[in-house]
Amino acid sequence: MTKRVAIIDDDNIFQFTTKVKLEKLKLADEVLIFNDGEEVLEYLKNTKLEELPDILFLDINMPIVDGWDFLEMYKDIEKSKQDRMDIYMLSSSINPDDVKRAEDNIYVNDYITKPIRDEDLTKIFNR
């Protein structure tokens, strides 16, 4: 089964290294890169259900539309599309407020602190 992963992060290095890692571990067939929430929301709205990513890696700190803003706007995405996608928050923040907030959000599957380890990635894809 083809896995499509979207990385939503403004950090170019993170985008690069994560993409390389996912390909190396053969966890994803396709890795999509978005620099902030606004870009990905546009994409999700305009993409057919079957072409949508299966997993979203969502950073918190981004310009324009950050992770939290994205989650607010994600509510407006069609239910069928939401059901298709799993959202993982990936952030360097160890602020307990952020962790708590992520846990309380119904759209977020898990909160993972950067740097992300191979085991964490494998776990996500084996669920």
């Binding site: 290095i13 360097s92 923040s93 602190t113 950067k114 740097p115």
Partner: peptide, 21 residues
Amino acid sequence: AYISSHNLRAPAGNIRALLDF
């Protein structure tokens, strides 16, 4: 402290990831 940690963790993580690569 959190922000510092965050802001330093990000490049540190990146360095680690690049070296892993």
